[in-house]
């Protein structure tokens, strides 16, 4: 500690004023172990003292897909495209939707849920929502694996003519996952910041996410919606999640179509939402403990 420091040269400053985006990447990097430990905690503690344990990761999307297939395809007869098994179609939609929605709901109560820790100790707050996104990424990976297994099953072990084929655009899948993550994270951070002062939003989130699912082309193709309800189609079409899910299904199953415009649209919206969320989150994290 004998290093000669200039009297003006302070290492840290605590002050009320803040830049618009004040992300100290060096600091976040220093806390990377904490991020990892939070992810580990989330994964190992969720299904402690349950009989089925991690199997729950599979059960939820599978059952939802079965129900969706029964209701929307068998009962309501929504077409899923030529030679694409409705079950696979729904599983693809649910897998990608789940990642977004768990990121959103998981991060949207960051401040309220972590009040205890945040009120007692400082670490870069953004670590907490990030850890949610990462642990959900892991769950998404597992669910993706289930999707792949069913894919193989349908192609090789059933008599059904399965025309669904993965497309070359699949190389862009990591980007798509990144968009979903950023979108969910940004939206979640925005909501969590606003809920510290205005609790009304907590009520909105829980059913808002459900409603949003119906507007995100999870259980129907966008083209079918456009053909049947053209006057409201724009609502679904400009929803970035629709674009992402449609792209996801195109990449994996070959239904719908790929356009760079859609891809860039989803990317830009995700980054913008993420930045807005980050700015608001940054503003909130300094004083939320006084208003929460």
């Amino acid at each position: 500690m004998d290093t000669k420091v200039d009297p003006q040269d302070w290492l840290y400053t605590i002050s009320p004023k803040r830049k618009l985006i004040d992300l100290n990447f060096k600091e976040i990097w220093r806390y990377r172990d904490l991020l990892f430990l939070f992810v580990k905690r989330d994964i190992i503690t969720v299904y402690k003292q349950t009989i089925l344990g991690p199997l729950w990761f599979f059960i939820q999307p599978l059952f939802t897909s079965v129900i969706f297939t029964l209701i929307f395809n068998n009962l309501a007869a929504i077409p899923t495209g030529n030679g694409v098994p409705p079950f696979l179609f729904n599983l693809a939609g649910i897998t990608s939707w789940n990642y977004f929605s768990t990121c959103l709901t998981g991060t949207s109560n960051t401040f309220k849920a972590n009040q205890g820790i945040f009120g007692k100790v400082y670490f870069p707050r953004v670590i907490t929502p990030l850890s949610v996104v990462f642990s959900n990424l892991l769950k998404f990976g597992i669910q993706l694996l289930v999707f792949v297994l069913f894919y193989i099953y349908y192609v090789f072990f059933t008599d059904q003519v399965v025309l669904a084929r993965p497309q070359l655009a699949m190389v862009l899948l990591p980007c798509l996952v990144l968009f979903m993550g950023l979108f969910g994270l940004g939206f979640g951070m925005l909501l969590s910041s606003l809920t510290t002062k205005y609790r009304d939003l907590t009520f909105l989130v829980s059913f808002g996410v459900q409603l949003l699912m119906y507007g995100s082309a999870v259980m129907y193709p966008l083209s079918y919606f456009k053909a049947r309800v053209p006057e409201y189609a724009w609502l679904v079409e400009y929803n970035p999640m629709t674009t992402i899910i449609e792209l996801f299904r195109y990449m994996t199953l070959g239904v719908g179509q790929f356009s760079w415009a859609n891809f860039i649209y989803a990317g830009v919206i995700s980054v913008v939402i993420f930045l807005i969320g980050l700015i608001i989150f940054n503003k909130t994290e300094k004083t939320f403990i006084d208003t929460v």
């Binding site: 290492l11 400082y122 403990i289």
Partner: peptide, 26 residues
Amino acid sequence: SKVTGPTTGEIKTRGRIASLLEVGTG
């Protein structure tokens, strides 16, 4: 300990601050 920000003024430090406002946080 940077849990909340000041309304005015500033604190400058030449070292890492760790705070122990409670044991067993988290």
